[in-house]
Design a protein around this nucleic acid. Structure first.
Length: 478
DNA sequence: ATAGGGTTAG
């Protein structure tokens, strides 16, 4: 018990200095605990590391999100704890992680165990599994999970129907969602939410005419379209490049006395901005207040982002300062958008500076922050600086994700240095170790590089690694 | 975890 106090106190004090929001994370700091777990395999040490509570366990699991095998090891270790018992939500998290690693044997073993313990599975649990199947390119298996829900003791109803449709739509499997929708809308009594999900799906794949058709069908079935329906359509027009249609649709919304909200305005600001219509974006941004709708942090983020992309980061900074002056609290997206703006303008130093400013604020640099800076350093040919930031990441208790590894591995090919290929190989080993599945392309590129630079031995090792990736599961069994 | 707005990258 003394152990966690000794290891954790210094970092806790650091976080207290600015005194405000981080305080919600109480004494046993999940970040510090996670970093101890990353270094330790000792069952006894993990079990006695903290006074475990469901909330703390979930926080630690989240910190280990990008190191699946460690997360599983942690879960399994606590499962053997004499006094602690996992909750349904930690099962959901660990099932999510296992499914992301495509370790379906473990996934279903955990689902079975959950059921044996009468902790679930819930509709949410199965939604997680279905979503991961779709993400892994297996939408048919996702649909099967939905169709067989009752076999897991989970009721199949309108909620779960809407959820599976949404999962399919969000992954752009809109056609499949639509087939399922047509087949089962009668049985489940499709409601306005069901229609909104499918309308939004067709908007996501830029099929606005089909989305409009469904909107009309909705009215025909006496289901009143909601503001959500209209906002989805509006976004869809922008996405499809139909800027004037979007504006016309907005005018119709106003004319029909629709209660236009902050989401509507944010969609307009962002939509005009991304096509370079900064004047119109600005006009909307400053007119919304007159219309009685206050911008949110998200609205500011959208506006700042489009200024960075289509105007200048200097103007974006003016808006950022205005936002702070008005009492808005920038979040990590705000910072990331600004940092990207500086990097994109070639002002890497100011980007890095802003990263520090973010840390001293209530925001911590997250994996996206690091990815942006690493990417731009590498793009600028400053490979060493990119690697430096990567190293800093591990000190900063932020685990790299798939993007981080992909960006860095690609960067290892630009200087044509044999040493870089060794680094690429090491990164590849590390990413597999952490539960990420590299693309075939990545394996081949690294293999070619190693063979060309005379590293036959290492190349062989990588080949063995690649074949072991095909034989999942490899990390864990209950 | 039943629906809509803001983060990579051309």
């Amino acid at each position: 018990m003394l152990r966690w106090k000794a290891t954790l106190s210094s970092s806790s004090i650091c976080r207290l200095k600015r005194g405000s929001k981080t305080l919600t994370t109480s004494a046993p700091d999940a970040a510090s605990i996670a970093s101890v777990i990353l270094k330790s395999d000792s069952e006894a040490q993990i079990q006695t590391l903290a006074p475990w509570t469901p909330d703390l366990v979930n926080q630690v699991v989240k910190r280990l999100w990008n190191h699946g095998p460690k997360a599983l090891h942690f879960f399994k270790t606590l499962d053997r704890h004499p006094a602690y018992a996992h909750t349904a939500s930690s099962y959901d998290h660990i099932i999510d992680i296992s499914a992301r690693m495509r370790d379906y044997k473990t996934v279903w073993a955990l689902v079975a165990k959950m059921r044996a313990l009468r902790l679930g599975p819930s509709q949410k649990t199965l939604a997680i599994v279905a979503e991961r199947y779709v993400a892994a390119g297996k939408p048919d298996r996702a649909v099967r999970v939905f169709m067989n829900m009752h076999e897991h003791g989970v009721p199949q109803d309108l909620n779960s129907f809407n959820t599976i449709l949404d999962i399919l739509c969000k992954s752009k499997r809109v056609e499949m969602a639509y087939e399922l929708f047509k087949m089962l809308r009668g049985r489940f009594r499709a409601d306005a939410v069901t229609y909104n999900i499918v309308v939004n799906g067709f908007c996501l794949i830029k099929r606005t005419p089909k989305a409009l058709e469904l909107l009309k069908e909705m009215v025909g079935r006496r289901l009143e379209p909601t503001l959500t329906t209209y906002n989805s359509m509006l976004k869809g027009f922008f996405r499809a490049g139909q800027v004037e249609e979007a504006w016309g649709f907005f005018l119709q919304m106003k004319k029909r006395k629709c209660e236009i909200d902050v989401v509507t305005y944010t969609t307009l600001v962002h939509g005009f901005g991304v096509v370079g219509e900064i004047k119109r974006a600005k006009k909307v941004f400053y007119e919304m207040v007159g219309a009685g709708v206050l911008p949110s942090v998200v609205t500011y983020n959208a506006y700042i982002q489009v200024l960075c992309k289509k105007d200048s980061v200097e103007h974006a900074m003016v808006v950022f300062e205005e936002m702070v002056r008005k009492g808005y609290v920038p979040n990590s997206t705000t910072y990331n958008v600004i940092i990207r703006g500086f990097c994109h303008a070639g002002e890497m130093e100011r980007g890095v500076e802003f990263m520090e400013r973010m840390k001293s604020d209530e925001c911590e640099a997250n994996v996206q922050t690091y990815n942006v800076v690493i990417r731009y350093f590498c793009d600028a040919g400053e490979i060493e600086r990119g690697l430096d930031v990567f190293r800093k990441m591990s000190e900063g208790k932020c685990l790299p994700n798939l993007d981080t590894y992909n960006v860095l591995i690609s960067a290892m090919f630009v200087r044509k240095k044999p040493e870089d290929l060794l680094v690429a190989g090491k990164l590849l080993v590390e990413m597999v170790d952490r539960g990420f599945l590299p693309r075939k392309f990545t394996f081949n590129r690294v293999l070619d590089g190693l063979l060309l630079t005379g590293n036959q031995g290492f190349a062989k090792e990588i080949m063995r690694l690649q074949s072991s990736c095909g034989r999942l599961p490899r990390h864990f069994r209950m």
